[in-house]
Design a protein around this nucleic acid. Structure first.
Lengths: 342, 342
DNA sequence: GGCAAAATTGCAAACGTGTGCAGACATCGT
DNA sequence: ACGATGTCTGCACACGTTTGCAATTTTGCC
């Protein structure tokens, strides 16, 4: 079973079959240049290409125009349930436009980010979608320095001049807090996400702003170091230690909320009877959990799709100015929130 | 300090800086050929490359050896929670070996499969990992015809001569049925998955074999057309219509099991009080659902990792014979199974 | 010191595609 | 009919890297 050197068919093979120069074939197969070739030849070329099963060699093609028809997607961890929908949105749009998407996990570690970016630059990707940005992110700078088009999705950065598709955090938090206050909650706590991410930061800001503007106490805040169940668990316990008089918790995302529920369970508390819990993002299957988690639904698939669309627009030079698109989330009320026990 | 990063730096730039021919640089940077170059020159080249921030252009390089250091991964739907762990396993192994992974969704549709494969072949991927195979899958044939190394993960095909990393379905089903019969169940039903997939088929076979060998009735089988909640729901209702005397259901995967639970709930039944339910795969967060689903855990990450390892071995010509690796699953007992009501 | 062998480096031709340029040929207006 | 304009196609080089071979230098040995 030696390698039979099954040579791939090239434009030259097609050219030989048709009896023209290979450059003619190249032109006939390029939408750009097709007009320069007589229709009859174009058709004969297409016929021959089809017959031979010709496939354009993207490597060679990319080498020429220095563009690869590939885009890179950086996520913290594919395994985190909010990312698959985002990626799927990106893939669907990108692939239908003829682009290939390459995803890599960063685990929120700087060196993995760097190496992933290097890998992608080595493949001379045409652009990058970053859904793992921190508010001040060297990756963004590096992309801009190297003139790689970049679109941020889900999280954005502090600096401006970038394209970003994110959720309207202020609106989401407001909806959730409206719901809680409507239920009669006055002492509401917040488990913040990492403040070096736009989502964690803005949700926290929105939280304190909301409470202050209503004359409520905004001091019950504990920060989770990461958006994980374990950190949610830890933060809830820490919070409870310092003040145990709150009746509702606004968590910065669903995983953190689940961690809170774990902690409560361990402490003999149940949601929503003792404390109401609101999550954020609406990861899959949340409605089946115990209790079904009330959460702020962010349109994950649309975010990804919109991000990909934006990147494609940049490729086509249709977008010169930077765009910050804030997609409006929607509160979905399930079973983890109720009126406070009086 | 960086300005016109416009043009990428090539080996010629490095060569000019060092004062040697660019072919020397190429050799100095290639582990294969490095020995042919004097150590001092090698070091000076490495120094210069580092200083200029040189990155090998993979496009050009690939064009030469006809290998791209990229592998393709085909999954039905990234959004299905069992695939992210598999993909993550693949990525971790592949990336640490310098390979890039490209994933595409097939949605189990033939034309999407074909176009995804075409896309990947156009990128002259070095190999492919297919975790969406059907028992008789044209993709597999096509890969073999085109001499593209292929490894099947999660599902395999009927024909032999392929490499596959799958679960030991017979063992998994047996563990689950042992558990159910130990609890006292005698009338056990099965919601089968699509029988044109190895998982759906083998689990169904294992189910009937087990029951027959124990002298139990193996007639209560309903087939779901897809591995989805909706199909599980539909199949359960159909099953219940034809015979309602079973006390336990073995579902072909977790999504189907969830569909069963939905149907039961709608019919005023609860698990495990009225009917016990066992799932398969252990998708994430199952332990938090209502009821926490008893399921057969298959080592998803390891499957992916093992699949990637196998592919790498093929690349290195270390594996000539085909390998079928059956990873042993493990039953995890939660709250959806109990002794039947007497 | 001389000479062959070995080590090191340069040269140039690929890999498959794209494209500016020029040549070949057809069409048209006067 | 003749030049002018336009259409179509071929030629040849470029993209950045790799590699067989030749040329050059160094080394080893007497």
């Amino acid at each position: 079973m030696k390698k039979k050197a099954k040579r791939k068919i090239t434009i030259r093979d097609v050219a030989d079959l048709v009896g023209v120069h290979h450059s003619t074939v190249s032109r006939a197969l390029s939408p750009q240049e097709r007009s320069k070739i007589s229709p009859t030849v174009v058709r004969r070329v297409e016929k021959a290409a089809e017959k031979l099963g010709y496939n354009r060699n993207i490597m060679a093609s990319s080498l020429k125009h220095n563009q690869s028809f590939a885009i890179g997607v950086l996520v913290p961890d594919l395994t985190n349930p909010i990312f698959p929908p985002i990626i799927r949105g990106i893939q669907d749009i990108a692939e239908s436009a003829g682009y290939t998407v390459i995803t890599a996990n960063t685990d929120d570690e700087k060196d993995k980010e760097r190496s992933a970016l290097r890998m992608m630059m080595g493949r001379s990707i045409d652009g990058i979608i970053l859904s793992a940005a921190r508010r001040s992110d060297p990756i963004v700078e590096e992309c801009i320095d190297n003139e790689i088009p970049i679109v941020l999705v889900n999280r954005t950065v502090d600096r401006d001049g970038v394209n970003a598709i994110v959720g309207d955090e202020e609106y989401g938090i407001r909806s959730a807090l409206d719901h809680l206050t409507d239920l009669g909650h006055k002492n509401i706590a917040h488990i913040a996400g990492p403040l070096d991410t736009s989502t964690g930061f803005e949700r926290c800001e929105a939280f304190t702003n909301y409470l202050r503007s209503r004359g409520l106490d905004d001091s019950r805040i504990e920060q989770a170091e990461k958006f994980t169940v374990a950190e949610g668990y830890r933060a809830f316990k820490a919070l409870f230690k310092s003040s145990s008089d709150f009746t509702a918790v606004m968590a910065s995302n669903d995983l953190i909320a689940l961690g809170c529920i774990d902690a409560m369970q361990e402490m003999g508390l149940t949601a929503p009877k003792d404390i109401s819990i609101v999550g954020h993002n609406d990861m899959p299957f949340l409605s089946r959990m115990t209790p079904a988690l009330t959460t702020v639904v962010v349109p994950k698939y649309e975010m990804g799709a919109q991000g990909a669309k934006t990147l494609l627009e940049i490729f086509k030079d249709e977008r010169s100015e930077s765009l910050i698109l804030r997609l409006r989330p929607k509160l979905v009320i399930r079973k983890s929130t109720a009126a406070p026990a009086s």
